[in-house]
C-alpha cells in the first residue's frame, strides 16, 4: 500500500544504460524505482539507453526459475502508469522495434514490450529538466 504523496516527495528520472542479465544495472534500477514509489515519490520517466534498450523486447525467454526483467518493468509500468522510454537511435542499432518503426524500416515484425515506447533522446533531456533528481544505472 503506497502512502499519499507529500511535500517532501520528489520526481525522479531514471536512466538504464545496460541490458538485462549481463549487468545488474536494470535490476538495480528496477529496485530503486520500486523503493522510490513505495516512499511516495514519483517516477517521471525511465529512459533506456545504450544496450539498456534490450530491456524493452518482449521476445526474451529467461529460464522459469529466473526473474523476467522485461515483465517486471512492464508490470511496474502498468501498476504505476510509468513512462518507459526506449531511445530510438540506440534501439534501431540493436533491433528493438515497435510496429511503426518495423513498417517504416521494412522489417517483418516488431518486438517492443508492453508498457515501453520508442522515442527520441530529447525524452532523456526533458526528464533531466523536469525531474528533481536523475539517477543513472550502468556498467
Amino acid at each position: 500500500m503506497l502512502r499519499a504523496r507529500g511535500d517532501r516527495d520528489l520526481r525522479f528520472g531514471i536512466v538504464v544504460n545496460e541490458g538485462p542479465y549481463t549487468h545488474q544495472a536494470s535490476d538495480s534500477a528496477y529496485r530503486f524505482a520500486r523503493a522510490a514509489l513505495e516512499k511516495g515519490h514519483e517516477i517521471l520517466r525511465v529512459f533506456f539507453y545504450h544496450d539498456g534498450v534490450n530491456n524493452g523486447t518482449r521476445f526474451t525467454v529467461p529460464p522459469q526459475d529466473d526473474r523476467n526483467l522485461q515483465r517486471q518493468w512492464s508490470e511496474l509500468a502498468e501498476a504505476h502508469k510509468l513512462d518507459l522510454v526506449v531511445c530510438i537511435a540506440a534501439a534501431q542499432r540493436r533491433g528493438i522495434l515497435d510496429a511503426n518503426e518495423a513498417k517504416r524500416q521494412g522489417k517483418d515484425g516488431d518486438n517492443i514490450a508492453p508498457g515501453f515506447r520508442i522515442s527520441g533522446l530529447g525524452q532523456l533531456i526533458e526528464a533531466g529538466i523536469q525531474a528533481d533528481r536523475l539517477v543513472v544505472f550502468g556498467d
Binding site: 545504450h50 533522446l121 530529447g122 533531456i125 533531466g128
Partner: peptide, 19 residues
C-alpha cells in the same frame, strides 16, 4: 565501447533544449 559516441549523441540532441 559505444559510450563515448552515444554520449555525444545526447549532447547534440540536448543542445536543442538550450540548457
Amino acid at each position: 565501447t559505444i559510450y563515448a559516441l552515444e554520449s555525444l549523441e545526447v549532447v547534440l540532441i540536448g543542445a536543442a533544449f538550450e540548457q
